[in-house]
Design a protein around this nucleic acid. Sequence first.
DNA 1: CGTCCACAGGAATGACGGGCGG
DNA 2: CCGCCCGTCATTCCTGTGGACG
Length: 413
Amino acid sequence: MANQNVLDDVFESFVNGVKLFKDREVLRHDYIPEKLPHREEQIKLLGETVAPVLKNARCSNIFIYGQTGTGKTAVTKYVLSHLESKAKEYGAQIKFCYINCRMTGSEYRVFASLSQSLGMTIPFTGLSVGEVFDRFRTGLESSRVLFIVVLDEIDALIKDRGDAFMYELTRINETLQKSKVSIIGISNDLRLKEFLDPRVFSSLSEEELVFRPYDARELRNILFERSKLSFREGTLSDSALSICSALAAAEHGDARRALDLLRVAGEVAERQGAKIITEEHVRQAEKHIEHNRVTEALKNLTLHSKLVLLSVYHLNKANATTGEIYDVYHELCGEFGAGLLTQRRLGTLINELDSMGLVNAKVVSMGRYGRTKKIRLEISRSFIRDVFADDGRFGELIKYVPQVTRKGSADTN
DNA sequence: CGTCCACAGGAATGACGGGCGG
DNA sequence: CCGCCCGTCATTCCTGTGGACG
């Protein structure tokens, strides 16, 4: 009964309470606004590059660099959607395919998606990559189009799969008579060049476009434009706007981050029944986002990654080495009844934890005493306790005290 | 100035659970 | 059903290496 009342209150206040949002969708990062402030230059350049297709000529390949949240994807989608409507007007035979390589994950699936966007059906596994590529080429040839391929976050794919498939793709035009392909590659990593075969690189970057990070003032303008659409008038304080921009600017000018902060700040404020979003709400939003990020990451770790992380937790010092961690991990596996992985494998697991920001790993040389990684926990210990405490048998392992005896590991804490 | 530690991290290979086309 | 290939995780074997010590 009491529960019922509580829930009633929640719903009641949600319906009747102060509403701050006009349209929450506007703050999501896949939303493409009518106007992209401070990106006029890039829009113009990309438009010029891509324009020849309106006269049924293949356009140059183009390579776009810039860090996350600098508007690369938004600008590309914006330009292409305008191009699409123009193409209809002029009757140009154009097709697009937008692929996010990090989500798509493998060269097989990239070619499968490309084929699917041409209306073919490709089984999602079971064929050889070569077979899928051949099908894609035949399908493309028979559809007689200018095909514009957008490969977003292409660095992710190239770094762990190599650039062989890119070589195929850049050369495909040589074997096509009735269709042509243009590639728009988007990379978050400015050093991608170093990973690419020079032939692939030169063919891919017939044109280049660089997106500089936004500064605090620019971020503020962006947020201001969006906030007019997303919030009711007078519900967003100036100081909240400024602090959002400043926080995101400090983090390499990431507009995506700024929008997240603003949206979550709005949600926090709304839940508290505030009439206006303040600086304090933004600060709470920042914590909230970080908390969610870490909790999600921890929950989704695989069994062994969890055991490794717990080993770091138990060692409880700022400079644990790979060897020490392996010893504790060894014990925990025993306690848990899990099979042992090799030290080699443990090394890559630690690197994964590092790139997730849960742990900080740095290779150091201790001269005569070897060369190893120094590993330290990047998140607060209470996070780990909270998340693992009600995660089945991991609850026990948090309390477990390892007995490891290792020469030279005298420092306690 | 060479040695040698304690690993790093690349390459090749295998096991496994999936799904294909015939 | 078979033979093949997929992606993922893991192992085995390996060569490489910064710098304190002697």
